[in-house]
Design a protein around this nucleic acid. Sequence first.
RNA 1: GGUCGCUUAGCUCAGCUGGUAGAGCGCUACGUUCACAUCGUAGAUGUCGCAGGUUCGAGUCCUGCAGCGACCACCA
Length: 937
Amino acid sequence: MSHELAPRLDPRTIEPARYRAWQEGGYFHVPASAVLEDGREPYVIVIPPPNVTARLHMGHGLNNTVQDVLIRWRRMQGRAALWVPGTDHAGIATQNVVERQLAAEGLHRDDLGREKFVERVWSFVHQTGGVILDQLKAIGASCDWERTRFTLDPELTRAVREVFVHLYEKDLIYRGEYIINWCPRCLTALSNEEAEGAETVGALWHFRYPLAEEAYEAAEIAHAAWEGGEASHADTRGDEDVAAGTTGLNRLEDGRWYVTVSTTRPETMLGDTGVAVHPEDDRYRTLVGAEVELPLTGRRIPIVADAHVDPSFGSGMVKVTPAHDVNDFEIAGRTGLDILDVMNSDATLNDEVPEPFAGLDRFEARDRVLAALDALGLLAGKEEHTHSVPRCYRCDTVVEPRLSDQWFVRMKPLAEPALEAVRDGSISFTPPHWQKVYEHWMENIRDWCISRQLWWGHRIPVWYCECGEVVVAREDPEACPKCGSAALEQDPDVLDTWFSSQLWPFSVFGWPEQTDDLKAFYPGHAMVTAPEILFFWVARMVMMGYEFHGKAPFSQIYLHGTVRDAQGRKMSKSLGNGIDPLEVVHEFGADAMRYTIVSQCAVGTDISLDHEDVEAAFANGRNFANKIWNAGRFALLSLGEGPVRPLSEVEDALELEDRWILTRTTIAGRTATRALERFRLHDAAEGLYHYFWGDVCDWYLELVKGRLGPDADDASREAARSTLVTVLDRAFRLLHPVVPFVTAELWTRLPWPEGADRPEDLIVAPWPDGVDGFEDADAERGMRDVQSLVVEVRRLRKEYGIPEGERITVHVTGAAAGLMDALAAQATALERLARIGRVAPAPGEGVGAHAVLESGAELFVPLEDVIDISREAGRLRDEIGRLEGQLESTHGRLANEKFTSNAPADVVQKERDKAQQLEEQGAKLREKLAGLEAGRS
RNA sequence: GGUCGCUUAGCUCAGCUGGUAGAGCGCUACGUUCACAUCGUAGAUGUCGCAGGUUCGAGUCCUGCAGCGACCACCA
């Protein structure tokens, strides 16, 4: 059977079949009864649901590989490991996709009307949505597909309703007119999180507004006080600025008084309803209550005092546009200024503005306003100004702050337990520094605008009656409870897509029904996601967990990095620097991709992959998978067909390398377990890589080759066979979470010791945590000697150019106890590995190559015939020099009384031993050098 | 402006509780030894950003500086 294995791993021939076998075996599915009846300890991860229209990209590859590694590992540990998959309806994103399709047909959503449009989106979702879940199968994701959920499923919609009504009844949801972030392209409100600031170099313009004549007297008083230096907020600018009119109050050559204000959005001046100064600002105290003439509009607007104004910024005077700026809106609320909305929803100016500007786009209006003010001589200056301009996270359009009637969630009360949870350790972050970021956000949390002027999403469960009654209900009401009218109108808006996502950890289990699933699987354990959605999603899930269940939805938040290209740029569709994970799977296999990702997945760091050389980017993983394949292939071939005896029966015949590799295996399991427990996936993967490639392949397989052949002693062969089977079984288990396919393929073909129970599949084989495995410290020490001897001999052979075929004799002296026995026992192996003819205990004489082993033993290879004596002498001198350097620093340390008295005793002792060892080595080398030089003369 | 993080071999990065540095890729040399050339063997490469401090001893702790990055808030 084993001879049919190809010399190269071809993932395409094994991966799909293996995945199918797992699915058919039902290994991914975890029923509630596993926990409630069988009493198994659950381990639950809910997937960060990708957008239903999404296609798999490397970010998903990373995110889901991490989750799958954790789930597979926990499943092998015997936990009821459940990974719930699903997709998010992704309000704006999905609506945008369908709108683009319509646009290609020359249509707008209004042409269809709401009902038809939503139907269209549904059919789009049914046809092409959820593809990403199938794509996840290709990378090996072991989700419980029977539990696949969609945020718009009826059950989840029910959860949304329940939450909305509950929060409304608790007065945690309210409706109000506030300045919100408005996307003039998507024509909807956005939350603060959805309006992403983009650092932009823009301009700050200074305008002059003429003061109304009645206020000239006040102006003169103010100005006099100011010039006389009595004003408490003396302008820090120089005279030039005053002359240029960039200070707040000036009389120009025309004899009129002007105030100066500044803005980065000149078009908003058309909506100004006031000018504000700080109440304590003595420069302008007398002007409060006066009026200015708002240019271009013919309107007069008052000067008011408000503490929000920063007297030291600019002129200390602020134009106030309440309908188009958050702060200005608040100022208006406090000071009673009018609120004048001058924009339409598409960010064109409306009829509230004078004729020439009405109907213009905001940016065109900006230019026109500037030109008009300039023509009037009211443009006082312009500065370069770098600030962050908010843009729509979906379409990148500049967001317009706009006065609007929206629904909000009152967040402060919800945030309190969520904040407490991380402070008392109920929830931990990996890496830990995110906790501070989270806390900071929670502490400064602001109300969440949840209504969206979209058609695709959860309709807000609020109905309005002609009688004025507002009905907020879990079920669609038939009639108005107050007047009985059936003419109820449902609120046209839908909820922010994150409103339903935040319920995901429990809505997927059927809440608000008290289902068995909920009892078994809530709360979950790990939340694996990217830091970008910490606020969008993670924080809100925590808040909802506490509000509706009194406990956190998960206990560990693991935030992995971002996938970047070779230049360190984030992979993105728009940059065209992405790598298609499916292509990688097709070319190199899912195992190759998974190992490459996981091995780079150090806590808190990004992973970088070169999109221009995909082969190189994944070579490491591909090579490793192939190495596993070939090691397995060789083992299967060498093991032959005969029965394999259990390790316990051959224990007496175990040789050094057997005991050693069994020990290494135990330690590898222990190390990997510790790493996984701490989310150190990179450490776990790299540790196992070196264990398998180095210990198992480079050393063990090479050492036992001779013992597996027909010439070998029976007892030795059987010991080797048992050991090899045991080691590979354990190794495949340990590697399985990271590289599930190749390990499973080989494991199922592995012969099994007679009489031993075989797990029905590798995917559920018990995880070797290394707690009670075979361990033999002597074997480790002995093997280290063998290894260092082999390495040194190889090095010497190389150094002196001794041909491959030529056997040499090696003398070993000063051997640590047992070394010679070990070496003698390994004679054949040593011959094979280091091309040694004989290992002799006698000290070497004459000219030869010399080395000191790690154990302190000295190695001497007589090489009169092959070496260049003067070169060897030089080498010895270098060696002696190096030893002396080390000795000096060691002696220096020992001579330091502070060291000997302060450092721990064992450290000092170690230092003494080292010094002695170095001295002995140095003496021997000097002797050797003397001999060499004598021999030459 | 605030907060947090990063700066270690040519590249990408590891280095947990302080004891004179590691991996992968790349590079050099040799090798068609019958599991694997997607391989093997051996080798080279670092004043661990700069300046101070604590310590017997500091990539490892503290302070300051410089450069880079992220997040939050925005001053009109």
